[in-house]
Design a protein around this nucleic acid. Structure first.
Length: 540
RNA sequence: GGCCCCAUCGUCCAGCCUGGUCCAGGACAUCGCCCUUUCAAGGCGGUAACACGGGUUCAAAUCCCGUUGGGGUCACCA
């Protein structure tokens, strides 16, 4: 193999992965080739660092699928002492945006899936933005043209559209009809030189077949008759994904391509490209696709897909990472907890054990996991997260500065109740604004308004007679009071709860009142008593 | 439609390669009970699945074939 790549000489000095092998195994359910050790052609003696990448295209919001595939790549790289790179595939000039690219990098950092090389961190194989690598693609296209593995196609959009219509009408399989396939070299050169627009297509020998080796699925066979003469170079002189991904993976020393299942049908084209260039192909491993509840590929119409949404909802990156990992393999030994941090996931991860069924993205389980992670945070850490979270400007909610000292006092009251950081307001609003009373709100206290008023006044009087507020001291006294008044303890507390907070589900009442302050608490009790003694008693 | 991938509780995963220990295990959700000033959290318990049909075998969730079902893909998007 060519020894020109800068990484190749360095590779042999890198430590072998923990397994002692290159980490690549093939599994085949149908052929019984389970876990057969496999050495990629470039894996000399299996002393080779794993180099993996994610190659998102910067269009639209940062996608949860990118995080999913990114996580598995990250785990695999870390586990094998290799490198994880980020490459931006911005060859679609009409759809790529710098803002989207920035959000991809921002969310990878938010998730703490650090990449060793990328547009913003650099690396030995840069640039890591395909729009800045056009010289490479031109050079390699020329190589293919010279070898006769590709050809210029001068067909117009209109002709192609017409061709497809006819194929459809005739119920023929769609695909390029080969009009320009055998254009004489001279004519091709001449028309190109004359400035005529063209694309470059792969020239596929329709007679053969290509086998794609997939770590999880074994051998997948494709007949060349089914493979279209794929466009490699667009008329705007930008490469298509197929060319760019192969050239870059080679130039960047990528050893394992872990990507989504939707790429399987185009993989034979990639394999053929590697062959045309005379390069060994990397190991392919196609990961399952995240699904909507109806099992279609996850989409933003049916499921939140933007990582920004998850962040704005107050999901912890630890929880999302944990959850995504669970959608594909089982870090658990089958007895007990499913809460794992990235270190534990890395230790338990096994690429060849990734499950193939497309997992339905279950927000409910994510929320549970988020609650688990929230509860595992120390009070200070939780307070920090809340302060930071509330300070962020989200599109639908301006950031707000909270008093860290106050938040630290509230956290013990709400931490085990919260599933998402965004619930801060609903748990604590009564600390910040006056309550708006409604008689229906008292219904759960199961007492008539005059009775409620009497109870609330008694509670206020009792608390007014002691210094300060102290839930340890006041609770027994209030229970006592309930007995003396002949009402249920629960009803008394519910009446107070609604009076002080305006709602029937709140953090622990007496502790909340301590934080609210005695003056405000008593004022609310008395205001509620007054409110309840007014108007039609039957209203409740 | 062609090609390709997939198939265990409602959902996520374990078991399948190396058939018997599986009247199938864990987690989320759900239901019930306990704890409890609400809501949570926590504890205990319950309901719930091997898609179907053939084979191979003494024995199949596990191996083979087929059917059905689901998904992906068929662009000068990735």
């Amino acid at each position: 193999m060519p020894r020109t790549h800068p990484l190749l000489s360095r590779r042999s000095t890198l430590p072998a992965p923990a397994s002692g092998r290159c980490g690549a195994f093939y599994r085949s359910r149908s052929r019984g080739l389970h876990c057969r050790p496999f050495s990629p052609p470039s894996c000399r003696g299996c002393i080779m660092a794993v180099r993996v990448r994610i190659a998102p295209s910067p269009t639209g919001d940062p996608h949860v699928g990118t995080a999913y595939v990114g996580l598995f790549n990250w785990l695999y790289a870390r586990q094998n002492g290799g490198q994880f790179l980020l490459r931006i595939e911005d060859t679609d000039q009409t759809r790529s945006t710098p803002a989207s690219e920035a959000s991809i990098m921002r969310t990878m950092k938010w998730l703490d899936l650090a990449y060793d090389e990328g547009p913003d961190v650099g690396g030995p194989c840069g640039p890591y933005r395909q729009s800045e690598r056009t010289a490479h693609y031109r050079e390699h296209t020329k190589l293919l043209l010279d070898k006769g593995a590709a050809y210029r196609c001068f067909c117009s959009d209109e002709r192609l559209a017409l061709m497809r219509e006819r194929q459809k009408a005739a119920k023929l399989p769609p695909g390029y009809d080969g009009t320009c396939r055998n254009l004489p070299k001279e004519e091709s050169e001449r028309r190109a030189a004359a400035g005529e627009k063209f694309v470059v297509r792969m020239k596929i020998d329709k007679a053969g077949k290509t086998i794609v080796k997939d770590v999880l699925r074994g051998d997948i066979e494709f007949s060349h008759a089914e493979i279209d003469d794929q466009v490699l170079m667009k008329s705007d002189n930008f490469p298509t994904y197929h060319l760019a991904n192969v050239v870059d993976d080679r130039l960047m020393g990528i050893t394992h391509v872990l990507r989504a299942e939707e790429w399987i049908p185009s993989t034979p084209k990639h394999v053929l490209l590697y062959q045309a260039f005379g390069w060994p192909a990397p190991v392919f491993c196609h990961l399952p696709l995240l699904r909507n509840a109806d099992r279609t590929k996850i989409s933003k119409r049916k499921n939140p897909t933007s990582l920004d949404w998850y962040r704005a909802q107050g999901f912890l990156p630890e929880a999302l990472v944990n959850f995504l990992a669970l959608m594909g393999f089982a870090p658990s030994d089958g007895s007990g907890s499913e809460v794992f941090d990235r270190q534990q996931l890395m230790e338990r991860f096994a690429l060849e054990k990734v499950s193939l069924g497309g997992p339905v993205f279950d927000l409910t389980k994510l929320e549970w996991l988020n609650g688990e992670w929230i509860r595992r945070l120390s009070v200070d850490a939780m307070a920090d997260r809340l302060v930071d979270f509330m300070a962020i400007d989200f599109p639908d909610r301006p950031g707000r500065k909270l008093d860290p000292a106050f938040v630290r006092q509230v956290v013990p009251l709400i931490q085990e109740r919260m599933k998402k950081l965004s619930e801060w307001d609903e748990w604590t609003d009564f600390f910040f604004k006056e309550v708006v009373l409604a008689k229906e709100a008292f219904r759960r206290a199961k007492l008539a308004p005059p009775e409620l008023a009497r109870v609330l006044t008694a509670c206020a009087d009792l608390l007014a007679a002691v210094p300060g507020l102290d839930h340890g001291r006041d609770e027994p006294a209030l229970r006592d009071l309930a007995t003396r008044l002949g009402v249920k303890v629960g009803d008394l507390f519910m009446a107070m709860r609604v009076a002080v907070t305006g709602k029937s589900a709140t953090p622990p009442l007496l502790e909340s009142m301590e934080l609210l302050g005695k003056e405000k608490s008593l004022a609310r009790l008395r205001a509620a008593a007054k409110f309840l003694s007014e108007g039609d008693p039957a209203e409740l």
